[in-house]
Amino acid sequence: MTAAAELIGVTQRFGSFTAVDEIDLAVPSGKLTTLLGPSGCGKTTTLRMIAGYSAPTSGTIRIAGIDSTRTPPEKRNLGMVFQSYALFPHMTVADNVGYGLKLRKVPSAERRLRVMETLELVGLAHLADRKPKKLSGGQQQRVALARAIAIRPKLLLLDEPLSNLDARLRVQMRAELRRIQAETKLTVILVTHDQDEALEMSDAMVIMNEGRIVQQGSPQQVFPRPADRFVAEFLGYENFLTAADGTPLTIRPEHLHIVEKGHGLDATVVDVAFRGVDLLVSLDVVDPSGATVRLLADVRSGATLTPGSGVTVIAPDDHLVSLPR
């Protein structure tokens, strides 16, 4: 597999602050790669360096095999969708989408054709003559996407493209983006802080923290095997306990079972929260090392659970993940 973009020892410092700290990254061609992490982890800075909006303090960026570290953005031929969409307010939807083609001196008849083709792809051909202000957030987002795709970019860069949409639309757009990626076969780099979004959409996910890459792989590889406590917490592993030999362990709330009596860990129910389809039970559990830890169990039913009652918690081995000490 060839890398559509490659970062080698890339560092970005702003004054004394190191936003991105010597990262190495190979973005697979024709796939959707997400840069995932909390705000301030360096994911957007990384994307902006790939796009050419800021030059790395040190390191090399290769795009399609060519060293592009100091190439200005207008010479990179990349499509970028900004978090704010950044649609040109004084142009119609069609002119926005055609802007990059006009700069490439595509003759007007062909331009019109390609603009309409791209708008068709995002389902907005009927709004070609509107001004961006007259569109809903979701429609503006699609225009921004069409504008970026129309130039047939080497890479499609998406900076938190879904974070300004409401929850339902966001979920719809995830599938929509996947479809467009599959149809265009573009290499996509998507920046997000939403782990569900990353899990659902990525071919490859790159998790960043404090300017470094902490784990990467396919969602199927990463999700069941978080590399450290940070990744585990970020992916929703809420329970942390210690094995008899002192190894830190983690397990997801939905993988804990509660039984009244059995072979497991002694626990006391602290609180029971009813959440409709399930119950979220807080427990004080004596872990294998002998320490008492507060754990959360997500269970289907538990009519008999009341705060203060003693129960047994079972943490199945195949769901327990060991973390580095």
Binding site: E74, R76, A86, G100
Partner: peptide
């Protein structure tokens, strides 16, 4: 005005001068 407007223009292939005359100036009009 959104500062990303100029960046968007640059990313689509406009030189800084071109971005100024086709995007920044019309937005400021």
């Amino acid at each position: 005005a959104d500062p990303a407007l100029e960046e968007a223009a640059r990313g689509l292939g406009a030189s800084p001068l071109r971005a100024f005359f086709t995007v920044t100036l019309p937005v400021l009009r």
